[in-house]
Design a protein around this nucleic acid. Sequence first.
DNA 1: TACTATTGTCTCATTATGTGACAATAGCAA
DNA 2: TTGCTATTGTCACATAATGAGACAATAGTA
Lengths: 242, 242
Amino acid sequence: MDFNQDKHMGSVPEQRFLPHIAYDSVIFGFSGEQLKILIMEYHNTGMFALPGGFVRVDEPLNDAVRRGLRERTGLDNIYLEQFYTFGSLERYQPEVMETILQANGFAVDDFRWMLDRFISVAYYALINYNKVNAQPDALSDSIKWYPLNDLPPLILDHADIVAKAHRTLQENLERKLVGMNLLPSRFTMKELQKVYEAILGTPLRRTTFQRKMLSLGILKRHEKRYSGKAHKAPYLYSFEGE
Amino acid sequence: MDFNQDKHMGSVPEQRFLPHIAYDSVIFGFSGEQLKILIMEYHNTGMFALPGGFVRVDEPLNDAVRRGLRERTGLDNIYLEQFYTFGSLERYQPEVMETILQANGFAVDDFRWMLDRFISVAYYALINYNKVNAQPDALSDSIKWYPLNDLPPLILDHADIVAKAHRTLQENLERKLVGMNLLPSRFTMKELQKVYEAILGTPLRRTTFQRKMLSLGILKRHEKRYSGKAHKAPYLYSFEGE
DNA sequence: TACTATTGTCTCATTATGTGACAATAGCAA
DNA sequence: TTGCTATTGTCACATAATGAGACAATAGTA
């Protein structure tokens, strides 16, 4: 989360946030043949959470999320999709935020609004793992990649949010041709296949996968990539239009 | 929208709402071989809008929507799906709500919170047209069915909401096997096909459709329905499990 | 030059879908 | 009763998509 550390926050219009409304982002990256997401750890609490934030009173919701992503990853023009808004009562646990504020030396009274009930609009983002320069926010001392199947325990309903993000990503994989957003602009067919396998959680048949991808007509073939290994070198591809 | 008409609303805890947060519902029904949705018209304004409402401070978001649907349609246990949360600045038009309040004889000062910026969580519902007993809310004098392709001009971004609801419904049609929710519990294959055609907006091939539906193994075949017409009578089907 | 791992492509089998044919009605008219 | 018509359920065949394996073409190493 990001918010003005000035105790008199309310006095700066651009820094006033809509109460009760937050967003959380599940930021997917791909590395070591695994799907990973960015998780923040709050100072001195051992608590882990998705990167999220608040919406300024004069700011479009989607802009708020892009702003947060830029601050957290240094990246612009990210593939981003809103997938669900979480509004159960179980996610209302003021003790959690209180602990976090106290551990950071903030006077709880000055941030009482953060202890309120929040409804959170959740987004997932797909980014090129190698381009990220992850930056923690004011309350957290780290933001790190964790494999999707080996996450630390997350606060509130963040584990549900991650699960739903993953499910939505699986459903959208073919329909929105989304796999290439997790790779650098040039990639081999095998790399693309590994991305699909990581997202779906099942192995795919090499020949069928290659035929299918090529038949879509959205890949442009470039030169080969010589890896130095003792075998035929694969072609590099890019997503049509890059 | 539904809210306590007592001017001292804030004093009744169950009737206090989360500020800045609303929901809107696109309620689909099927009649006359057409997709229709429920639209409300506000008293003395000529303004049309989707049925919506607010979330009580101690109420889960999804419950709030189901409550609103029950009040508006008299139905319980409705097929309901959240599909997007709208948070642009274009949807902030305090004049609109002000006009509506004034036209209903409410003192605007007592409902100033309704003139604020709202983020709206949008849901679509699929219901059996014939079971609905539509009830207008405190501000509107009618709630009526309109064919999807012949809607009155809607306030704010409600036309966008409807368009996105329709798109999402189309995408979910096969994946979630959702068509039967628009029909009575027993229906003919032709009726089901008409629903699919209305949702997708394209004609479907009778034999292929029938084969596909039967192969899914989710339909139970019952007795025939004799319509009095001079031709072979079709079987009735139900969704497996009813 | 032989050998290995990997890649690109082809072939054939299997499954799904498009397209039309056809027999089986249910009521009506003769 | 016997045709007649519109509609339904099912089948048959053609076409398209996918599963599954075979195989030749490398890029390096031994």
